[in-house]
Design a protein around this nucleic acid. Structure first.
Length: 358
DNA sequence: TCTGGGGTCCTAGGACCC
DNA sequence: TCTGGGGTCCTAGGACCC
């Protein structure tokens, strides 16, 4: 073979948000750092990222900030500074794109797939880690795979600061006995439903007849879960620019809302904020979704298509019509508004229907 | 312990049409 | 009068990811 082998690398920054905060406040090095909400543990908020020192106390992403603060009394709790993380992320992604021969597919602030041709992917991964560290002073882990899925699942075994390879050769050996919830794309709900069919491990899922899951999960998702169990799927890293399908804003009220007029005020505010993002792209609005969380934790959504418009007053009027569907007796703890935008034809073309980031 | 904010995609069921 | 089968569009809801 004269051509070198194509590989998928999954680059994942270690404790990204906490690490970025420590960089601009070196005195925090080695301390338990928790970033979340507005940095006030008495408010309704959750942990975005905890440093490894804080994780040692059992704190993790998604945990209520209040609980995290209780677990680590001396933790330094900081507010989320999205603009700062975006800037740091851009530096990291620029570094990846600057490496010879790479195709970069960004998944979020702190991770990306990198497609590359090489006969020594471990060596390439170490070069990548060094380049990122030299330019941004941030450490990352790298998963190597022959599919996106295997690369993504490999990264966890390399953390922190390491490299791990997962291919068709060792997939079942490494992943086979693990619970299905460890798979990227399978959460707690699906893993429980799979268990109801006698499928608990990755190996069991991989050995399942795809057609047998159609009734439970539908024509696409049933067979797709078997694909996940096998670690298969695409090997193509896709760097075509991302086109937003919509924009949304949400607010959680510190005290539940009961007054309908307050709800209308909140919707006016959300419309204004959503439209800022939509207007920035110069695209019209074609649909609205109002998402409401009632106390304690029940979510309802109300959606409607609307004639294409860029007029803020029209959007506001339509949004307020959705508000009228709410039961005024119910206490509201979260309000979200999403505006959908038309997809350009060329962006829709060739788009692979996938979920959860790819 | 009590659950943020920003996204993506899939499915079911009803309305409507031929 | 009661009925088929196929298709599309829309709404609501669910699940997942970072």
């Amino acid at each position: 073979m004269t051509e070198t082998t194509p590989w998928v690398l999954h680059v994942d920054l270690d404790q990204f948000i906490a690490a970025v905060e420590v960089l601009r406040r070196p005195e925090l090095m080695g301390k338990p750092v928790i970033v979340g909400g507005r940095g006030d543990p008495s408010e309704r908020a959750v942990v975005s990222t905890a440093s490894y020192e804080a994780r040692a106390f059992g704190v993790g992403s998604g945990m209520p900030l209040r609980i995290a603060a209780r677990k680590v009394p001396d933790a330094v709790i900081l507010p989320v500074d999205a603009a700062h993380y975006t800037a740091a992320s851009d530096e990291v992604m620029a570094t990846l794109r600057a490496q010879p021969g790479t195709t970069v597919q960004v998944l979020g602030w702190d991770e990306a797939f990198v497609g590359v041709r090489t006969d020594d992917p471990e060596h390439y991964a170490r070069d990548l880690q060094r380049a990122v560290l030299d330019r941004t002073a941030l450490h990352c882990s790298v998963g190597i795979g022959d599919t996106l899925l295997r690369a993504k699942n490999a990264t966890g075994f390399g953390k922190p600061r390491g490299v791990f390879r997962l291919t068709a050769d060792n997939w079942l050996e490494v992943m086979g006995e693990r619970p299905t919830v460890d798979l990227w794309g399978v959460g707690t709900k699906i893993s429980r439903r799979l268990a109801g069919h006698g499928i608990s491990t990755v190996a069991e899922l991989a050995a399942t007849d795809p057609a047998s899951l159609v009734e439970e999960f539908g024509p696409k998702m049933g067979p797709w879960y078997v694909t996940l169990g096998r670690g298969e799927g695409t090997s193509v890293v896709d760097d075509t620019p991302w086109v937003a399908r919509g924009h949304s804003r949400e607010t959680t009220f510190q005290q539940n809302l009961t007054d309908p007029e307050q709800v209308r005020d909140a919707v006016r505010d959300l419309v204004a904020r959503v439209l800022e993002d939509v207007a920035a792209e110069g695209r019209p609005v074609i649909g609205l979704t109002l998402k409401v969380r009632f106390a304690p934790f029940v979510t309802k959504t109300f959606a409607r298509k609307i004639p294409e418009t860029s007029d803020p007053d029209t959007v506001l009027a339509r949004a307020l019509e959705l508000v009228d569907k709410l039961d005024p007796e119910k206490q509201i703890r979260l309000l979200g508004l999403r505006a959908e935008m038309p997809m350009p034809e060329d962006a829709r073309e060739g788009h692979t229907p996938t979920r959860g980031g790819w």
